[in-house]
Design a protein around this nucleic acid. Structure first.
Lengths: 191, 191
DNA sequence: GTCTATACCTTGATAGAC
DNA sequence: GTCTATCAAGGTATAGAC
């Protein structure tokens, strides 16, 4: 079954991207992890960038699914909190693909990928609506530009603090999630 | 002059690390930027990792210098704010070397580099003292583990939000610094 | 569509003359 | 210590048989 094989490929790419990042991940590794020859990979995906883009699209779709399933009865602030919590948990599970934030061949490929851009836009719209509502009701600081809030939320998806705290060995995953949620929404200053 | 040449090398490495990261930076580029042959580089530094480590040590020393010069009359909270502000400014100037947070050959080299570890420890001690004082006086949330606060501060040095906001083109560098400082210390929630 | 084998290139690092 | 020239390894991608 073609779809099942491709899902297995993308799943492994996803994991490897989370583990080592785009540049350190090799196509040989992916092929070995899936258990097929490298040349077979290239029958499904035309390039390494294409592989990574597929993994990113898969993750974005999962994110969108989660957002769509968030309890509409929650306050806008709690919806945002739920979104960030989900992101942090995915990252702690080693399932959040890490891509270079700097310019690279991958960024060009992503910017040319309609699936990626569309899903990213949908997510941004949904989060943007929540942000606007939260600022209107005064639960999120209205002085912050909505775009800055959005970027700050996205950045939690690749926050190195999670890995640092995890390797310190002093906190459970649940504690780490709550700590980062707290610093994200409440800040370091005392309230 | 040997020292001057090595300073020129490390300066270029620093800039290239900030631009493209460790993996995307090539030794050929460094040699070209400095204006010497690649083989000559290897007379000064024994490996690419060694080059990057030297750049990191240089940046850590600059950070330590800055911390030592912070006005002792400031409150502990304002000292921490000054430290983060400095980090953000360096990053916006494209001078903050970006290293892979994931495991790699570079991490091993850094962990074997006494200069790096010593300076990092000194900085952490200085910041740690300020954090403790700030928590004691109640200006920083005392419920947060000091280590989590420290990591959160460090993480601002590679915060992708800066680059996102910069490329949005809607804010000056000064505004971006104040925005990120605000989200870091005050959080997204309204106060 | 899977495989083996390989082309082609880039990269980190070195040899050896000066 | 600088250069030119080169090596060895490992990477992406492809050819071509089945």
């Amino acid at each position: 079954m073609l779809a099942a094989r491709e899902e297995a490929i993308v799943q492994n790419v996803n994991r490897l991207l989370a583990e080592k990042g785009f540049e350190a991940m090799t196509v040989d590794e992916v092929a070995a992890a899936v258990g097929i020859a490298k040349a077979s990979l290239y029958k499904h995906f035309t390039s390494k960038e294409d592989l990574a883009a597929a993994a990113m699209v898969r993750m974005l779709r999962r994110a969108r699914q989660f957002l769509d399933a968030v309890d509409p009865a929650l306050s806008p602030l709690d919806k945002l909190r739920a979104a960030v919590r989900w992101t942090l948990q995915v990252q702690l599970e080693g399932q959040m693909p890490a891509l270079p934030s700097q310019n690279s061949s991958l960024r060009a490929a992503l910017m040319a990928n309609r699936d990626y851009l569309d899903t990213l836009m949908e997510i941004s719209d949904e989060l943007g609506g929540w942000i606007e509502a939260a600022q209107k009701e005064g639960s999120v600081n209205p002085k912050l530009p909505a775009l800055a809030v959005l970027y700050t939320l996205y950045a939690r998806g690749c926050d190195p603090v999670l890995g640092f705290l995890q390797s310190s060995g002093q906190h459970s995953d649940e504690e780490i999630v709550e700590l980062v949620l707290s610093t994200c929404f409440d800040g370091l200053r005392n309230r």
